[in-house]
Design a protein around this nucleic acid. Structure first.
Lengths: 272, 272
DNA sequence: CTTGACTCTCCCCTTGGGGGAGGGCGTATG
DNA sequence: CATACGCCCTCCCCCAAGGGGAGAGTCAAG
């Protein structure tokens, strides 16, 4: 062979593309050898093909599909010709980044919630305590009806504000007594920052002193913990205001339903 | 069949997973039907499987691989059990985001450079002009030797600071006359922000008045444009300082080599 | 001429399913 | 009772962008 022709192995070393890849690009018509020996089938590449291989490598590094690259090679020989391709591709990549960020935020939230639950689990003596809450930004959906419908509120918030959620879910109760079928309550979720959303009330929930008790176990047994905390409040004659809160430190998670015996719910009764 | 068993089609509607997908998950052992009729081969799913399908869907939404999901389902039944998986996965996703951002930045840079070149191309009368330059942050590699080695400097900067690059490449010339083999020059690239890098000088290049001329054509013909601009400077008796600059508005691009007749190079001689 | 390095084609594998062919099963209707 | 329709099965091929390897042919040097 002429000294100016390279065998596929040599060309592979020159371009950094594997032999497999070169054969594949040949098959796809993307990078066709200058000469193919009709008898042996050996591929031989020209020095001009080095430049073309470099172009393909650059475009692959920008994660263009081979199909797009083929289209670009057919129609372009200057950067200005591919501006449209570049912009479309960039938009797609940024779309992908937004998507990935969304996922990362969701995972982060699951981790944070679980961490917080573990911290509470380790620290809690499951006794009535008095503490000061920090103000927090929440998104809430005020509802009237059955408590069991609060899941709908959470999923509504999740759908609209998924990527802004920050902490555990909670629920505000505006009734001063237990209401079976006509309760007035508001499922809420903590937000990283205030964002507007239709049909959802986003605001800062005030902080302040409150009486709390962490309940461990299934929700059906929340009554016992309410008895305990209310007994404490009555005995100490602490004045309580509405709305009271339940913070779902650990419940049926985003992923697993988990064991109800391990659920952790913090009851918070604001002092006022 | 018992009313509590669902055929694959019903189960598909319940879970939102396609029939194909359900069969695939069965094959992978990820979501096995409660009962498989030995004669007809029909799959029947239990209501417990709905929960499992939901878990799988959630994990898929977080873009876990089916393999990872299978491992998680085998070993976990609570969110706390998968914290390790979640953290590793989050790290991977963030790695991916960094990668994508890098690509998006590269594309953005190519687009911006090309846009700038088009703007100059449209506006330029290819005449000697006097204008005021803005200060800019650059990364440079001072070199001594042949002009043709400046490509090495550019690739060195590109390797180390790829994701911070902002504008077109340029080159500073510290010789007051043309030097063939022992030139003193500095390939530079504009940065978005000041970043440190070993062996690379990052600093703010001062702005100020200068005499400029846009040269269109291959680099071999730069001499003509130099003649033109120097003639102008001499005639008007404008005092010139070093280093002079060449800004490569359009040259062999990141991707295509392009047509040398379309190359645009702006010669800038600082007035001082 | 032989040997070792190189190359060829062909086939299977990856992920997460989608599309369709050809055939079995059950039931509602003419 | 026959049939038509809907649902289900398995089996095979397809996507992107190659990787791995088998078995056979080719090239160049000793």
């Amino acid at each position: 062979m002429e000294p100016s022709f390279f065998s596929i192995g040599e060309f592979s070393k020159i371009t950094g593309l594997s032999v497999k890849t070169l054969r594949f690009y040949h098959e796809k018509g993307l990078l066709v050898p200058t000469v193919v020996d009709t008898e042996s089938g050996y591929r031989y590449y020209d020095h001009k093909k080095i430049e073309k291989a470099r172009v393909i490598t650059q475009l692959r590094a920008l994660e263009f599909s081979l199909e797009d690259i083929a289209a670009m090679l057919r129609r372009c020989e200057d950067e200005s010709d591919i501006l449209g391709f570049l912009e479309r591709h960039k938009e797609q990549i940024e779309q992908g980044i937004r998507h990935q960020r969304n996922i990362a935020a969701n995972i982060e939230r699951i981790i944070a919630t679980e961490r917080e639950a573990q911290r509470v689990m380790a620290a809690a003596g499951y006794a009535v305590e008095e503490k000061t809450l920090e103000p927090m930004i929440v998104a809430g959906v005020r509802m009237r009806g059955k408590y069991s419908d609060c899941g709908k509120g959470f999923s509504q918030i999740g759908r609209k504000l998924g990527r802004h959620l920050a902490g555990p879910a909670l629920c505000l109760y505006y009734d001063c007594e237990y209401q079976e079928d006509d309760a007035d309550f508001e499922p809420c979720m903590a937000l990283r920052q205030a964002v507007e959303a239709e049909g959802i009330s986003v605001r800062t929930l005030p902080g302040g002193r409150c009486v709390t008790l962490v309940h461990q176990g299934p929700y059906e047994q929340l009554g016992r913990s309410y008895a305990k905390i209310l007994e404490h409040v009555k005995r100490k004659q602490i004045p309580i205001t509405l709305p009271s809160r339940e913070v779902y430190l650990k419940g049926p998670g985003m992923i697993f339903k988990g064991d109800p015996k391990k659920y952790l719910t913090e009851i918070q009764l604001p002092v006022g």
